[in-house]
């Protein structure tokens, strides 16, 4: 049987990949996918701890995260489409209206 620590390690790796992706990616879709990756890394650790403690609360929580992620994906994609329509680009560095 796979030890619990492996799941946690995988979760940490996935999360780190997601964070780094958010920081270095410029394409807004990649950025978006990295955020999803971080969410799912967290989901994985939640399920792991749920199993460790023999408590389903963690698994329930995962469903909530998934539901929120789905909603967020819908909104996020809509924003991306709107952004593309107005700027003809997916590069986040060019959406810098707040900059002085």
């Amino acid at each position: 049987m796979v030890p619990l620590s492996w799941y946690l390690a995988l979760s940490a790796v996935l999360f780190t990949v997601g964070v780094i992706g958010v920081l270095i990616q410029r394409n807004v879709i990649s950025l978006f996918m990295c955020i999803e990756l971080m969410l799912n890394a967290v989901n994985l650790s939640l399920v792991t701890f749920s199993r460790l403690h023999g408590n389903v609360t963690g698994q329930l929580f995962v469903f909530i995260v998934m539901a929120v992620a789905a909603a967020e994906a819908a909104v996020g994609l809509a924003i991306i489409i709107a952004l593309f329509r107005s700027r003809e680009t997916l590069n986040v560095d060019e959406a810098d209206l707040l900059k002085l």
Partner: peptide, 11 residues
């Protein structure tokens, strides 16, 4: 001046 306008800076 603290607002750069780059989303990744905020991240």
């Amino acid at each position: 001046y603290t607002q750069t306008g780059f989303a990744r800076n905020y991240a």
